[in-house]
Simulated assay, not measured.
Amino acid sequence: MDRRSDAYSTHGWRQAFIDRCKDLAPVETAVVHPCDAATLEAVMEAARLGLILPVLVGPEGKIRAAAAAAGADISPFRLVNTPHSHAAAARAVALVRAGEVRMLMKGALHTDELMREVLARDTGLRTARKVSHVYLMDVPRYPRPLMITDAAINIAPDLDDKKDIVQNAVDLAHVLGMDEPRVAILSAVETVNSRLQSTVDAAALCKMSDRGQITGALLDGPLGFDNAVSPAAAADKGIASTVAGRADILVVPDLVSGNLLAKQLTFLAGADAAGVVVGARTPIVLTSRADSEPARIASCAVAVLMAQATISAGPAIGA
């Protein structure tokens, strides 16, 4: 069940991501350890919508038991039997490397189990970039889609990590049709303070953008959350910026602050959310066990758009 109260009204951008996939071919997707009803229900719906061609990877007995509990007919789908969740993660990554699937979707296993195989140096899906996570939020009181990164993978990113985290999010924004996204580098204050490393990192990231080390976006920071999303708050602080008050992407200082922010927007502000892992050789749908089915479906749609990135991204959503 979607936890958003009926008192909140979002803008429908999550559905817009799904609608963008209607003319695209479904993407072969390894669903890793789909041994719970919630995962299989989302898989069935994503397949019905033509988003994915599922390959179910995990212990066959547990998958069939979960399918029976969910009333799901998995007979049309390929099933790759493995003894346990660790082996399922390794086999799913191997399927990507062999070219048999083009996406991964997390099922009923810990994120660490899946990401350990994704990040394995010799057998994983690493690229030159740091792998990171992006939440896409449809917040009722915010007039455009809002991306938050990184709230799920990198615990305490350093400056080099943040450079990749920013570029990953910018590249995803381009896929979604945002030609020059506005990126706010968040901290607790708006001025650079040598004792607050997040402000120093923010200033350095902005200079990296000036020098072409980060491309395709407008950056500003350090910015507080209030003056990143509120024109009035930015004006009150005397901040003149093309980003302040109108951010498309929020780059948080660390995983804890990002995770808290994303969940507060979801559970207290009625936001719709979707989440994907970027920076690997393939998109990864990485959802929480607490996520609703619509959130899982929207995450699939965003990952499909990433996988089909050679196709025109189309008009910007929420421009």
Rank of each mutant, 00 (worst) to 15 (best):
R141P: 13
R296V: 04
A38G: 10
A313G: 13
A92H: 08
S312I: 04
A94V: 01
R4H: 06
A38T: 13
D179H: 15
I148K: 01
V277P: 05
R91H: 13
R211N: 12
I74P: 00
V131A: 06
A262T: 08
A298Y: 05
R4F: 08
S230N: 11
A25Q: 15
I18Q: 12
D36W: 09
A204I: 10
L79I: 12
V93L: 08
R121D: 12
R246C: 06
V31R: 00
A120D: 15
V285M: 00
V304W: 01
A65S: 07
R141V: 10
P34G: 02
Q15D: 09
N168F: 07
E190K: 03
A94H: 05
V256K: 06
A65E: 08
V252M: 06
P26H: 02
Y135N: 07
R195I: 14
A156I: 10
D138A: 08
T82M: 05
D112E: 14
G275R: 02
D158N: 13
D291K: 00
T111A: 04
A295T: 04
N154T: 08
F225M: 03
V131G: 04
P145S: 14
P181A: 05
V278P: 08
I311N: 06
R102N: 01
L305M: 15
L51V: 00
S230K: 09
R78V: 12
N154H: 04
S209C: 14
T242H: 12
G258W: 00
R144L: 11
Y8R: 05
M208D: 09
K237V: 14
Q213V: 11
L261T: 00
V200S: 11
T123C: 06
A108D: 15
S85F: 02
T149L: 12
N259T: 00
C21E: 00
K263S: 01
A319V: 13
N154Q: 08
E41V: 10
S198I: 03
V302M: 10
K207L: 13
A202H: 06
L51D: 01
G270H: 03
M103I: 02
P157D: 13
D210C: 10
R121E: 11
L286V: 11
